[in-house]
Amino acid sequence: MSFEVLEQLEAKIQTAVDTITLLQMEVEELKEQKQALESEANELRSGREALEQKMQNMQQEQTAWQERIRGLLGKMDNVE
């Protein structure tokens, strides 16, 4: 092989190594982004569950108040 062919081969190898290095860096960055998104998704899921629980508690409280009001209105009807 001639020296020129070896230089071309070396340049191609170096380009391949550089590309692989850049792709590895990109993969690491994407892994970090994925981790951050998973964390955010878990936080949102927890927040949603807390809100659903709060809504359920408020609905139960509303039902209890409605029953109390109905009972008081029933007593008022009995007085008249």
Rank of each mutant, 00 (worst) to 15 (best):
Met1Asp: 12
Ser2Glu: 10
Ser2Val: 01
Phe3Glu: 15
Glu4Met: 00
Val5Arg: 15
Gln8Asn: 09
Leu9Arg: 12
Leu9Gly: 07
Leu9Lys: 12
Glu10Asn: 10
Glu10Tyr: 04
Ala11Leu: 06
Lys12Tyr: 02
Lys12Val: 04
Gln14Gly: 08
Ala16Phe: 03
Ala16His: 05
Ala16Trp: 00
Val17Gln: 09
Val17Asp: 08
Asp18Gly: 02
Asp18Cys: 01
Asp18Ser: 05
Asp18Gln: 06
Asp18Thr: 04
Ile20Ser: 15
Ile20Cys: 13
Thr21Gln: 13
Thr21Phe: 05
Leu23Gln: 14
Met25Thr: 11
Glu26Pro: 00
Glu26Val: 03
Val27Glu: 14
Val27Tyr: 06
Val27His: 07
Val27Gly: 05
Val27Leu: 12
Glu28Ser: 06
Glu28Pro: 01
Lys31Asn: 10
Lys31Met: 06
Gln33Arg: 06
Lys34Glu: 10
Lys34Cys: 03
Gln35Ser: 11
Gln35Asn: 12
Ala36Thr: 08
Ala36Met: 08
Ala36Leu: 09
Leu37Lys: 03
Leu37Arg: 03
Ser39Thr: 15
Ser39Tyr: 11
Ser39Gly: 15
Ala41Glu: 11
Glu43Gly: 06
Glu43Val: 09
Leu44Asn: 07
Arg45Leu: 13
Arg45Val: 07
Ser46Lys: 09
Ser46Glu: 15
Gly47Ser: 14
Gly47Val: 05
Arg48Trp: 06
Glu49Arg: 04
Ala50Tyr: 05
Leu51Ser: 13
Gln53Arg: 09
Gln53Pro: 02
Lys54Leu: 10
Lys54Pro: 04
Asn57Phe: 01
Asn57Met: 11
Met58Trp: 08
Met58Thr: 14
Met58Ala: 15
Gln60Thr: 11
Glu61Trp: 00
Glu61Leu: 01
Glu61Ala: 02
Gln62Leu: 12
Ala64Trp: 01
Ala64Lys: 03
Gln66His: 04
Glu67Gln: 08
Glu67Lys: 02
Glu67Gly: 00
Arg68Ser: 09
Arg68Asn: 09
Ile69Arg: 02
Ile69Phe: 02
Arg70Cys: 03
Arg70Ser: 10
Gly71Lys: 15
Leu73Ala: 12
Lys75Phe: 04
Met76Ser: 11
Asp77Asn: 08
Asp77Ser: 07
Asp77Gln: 09
Val79Phe: 10
Val79Trp: 09
Val79Ala: 13
Glu80Gln: 09
Glu80Asp: 14
